[in-house]
């Protein structure tokens, strides 16, 4: 496994794309978080907003870059035919997939940590100017606060899970355009499909099935009572999607010719 990890790390390290994408994860996440912290305002005490969710909103855009990184890492090998060389050199396919996933997750967690920390700092600096002041019942964003710490750590884990989820889909689909379409469709379109149903019970049910919506409940710190799932259960839903995608990808990788 150590040799495989080293091989995958060398492949990823020597391509120009991943570096830019990881930088993109950090920049886009912090940028959207900062924009959200500036434009969402709280006019009076009890304005009902969850300041932690606003401060970490950039994850919704950063996840697209994470998905792109995962898809390109996997599908790039298929489009150039390198996958045949890789599988000849490392015939144990599950191990190869595990090594790829491991390197990918490690890089994503590192970039995700930087992105989330940047967002928290941006939120701490910008949110008070938008009316999220102690007078309105909002303490400054701080990682010393239990729920905020959970939201921040959870957001990093969320990005890691998104990388694994996208990798699983990419291995199963092999074509980068189709894989990107499927991953982004599952991440972004659930809210639109949910809104098509008029019935509120159906809406809540679909909400708790949706990978992005359920997963991002890990960021909720104030609305716990009204959300369909608890924060960790929400992240668990995404973990289940990830496990299913990886299982599917792994099985297809073992069964299919490359």
């Amino acid at each position: 496994m150590k040799r495989e990890l080293h091989a995958e790390w060398t492949k990823l390290r020597t391509m120009p794309g991943p570096g830019w994408l990881l930088a993109g994860v950090i920049v886009l996440t912090v940028a959207l978080s900062a924009v959200a912290a500036t434009v969402v305002t709280c006019g009076s005490p009890g304005c009902g907003q969850d300041s932690t969710r606003i401060g970490l909103m950039g994850v919704q855009l950063g996840q697209a870059m994470v998905a792109l990184l995962a898809v390109l890492t996997i599908c790039g090998e298929y489009s150039t035919g390198l996958i045949r060389t890789s599988l000849t050199a490392m015939p144990r396919r599950t191990t190869l997939l595990a090594a790829k996933a491991g390197v990918l997750t490690g890089l994503t967690l590192a970039a995700g940590t930087a992105a989330v920390l940047g967002s928290v700092v941006a939120g701490r600096l910008l949110l008070p100017a938008s009316g999220f002041t102690p007078a309105h019942g909002y303490a400054p964003l701080s990682l010393a606060d239990g729920p905020t710490l959970r939201a921040a750590i959870g957001s990093v884990l969320y990005l890691g899970l998104i990388a694994l989820f996208s990798a699983g889909i990419a291995v199963a689909v092999r074509d980068s355009a189709a894989a990107t379409g499927i991953v982004l469709g599952l991440l972004y379109l659930f809210p639109l499909v949910i809104r098509m149903f008029g019935d509120e019970d159906t809406q809540r049910f679909l909400w708790s099935l949706s990978p992005a919506n359920a997963g991002l409940m890990i960021q909720a710190t104030t609305d716990a009572a009204v959300l369909p799932l608890t924060p960790w259960a929400g992240l668990g839903v995404l973990a289940a999607w990830t496990a299913a995608a990886l299982l599917l990808g792994g099985l297809l990788l073992r069964r299919r010719d490359a």
Partner: peptide, 23 residues
């Protein structure tokens, strides 16, 4: 492919989702 797909989705679809289903 992947870059172009993501660019198109981020340009057309993500603004709509952020505008109708976010905070």
């Amino acid at each position: 492919s992947a870059m172009a797909v993501i660019a198109a989705i981020v340009a057309v679809l993500v603004p709509y989702v952020l505008a109708t289903a976010s905070l």
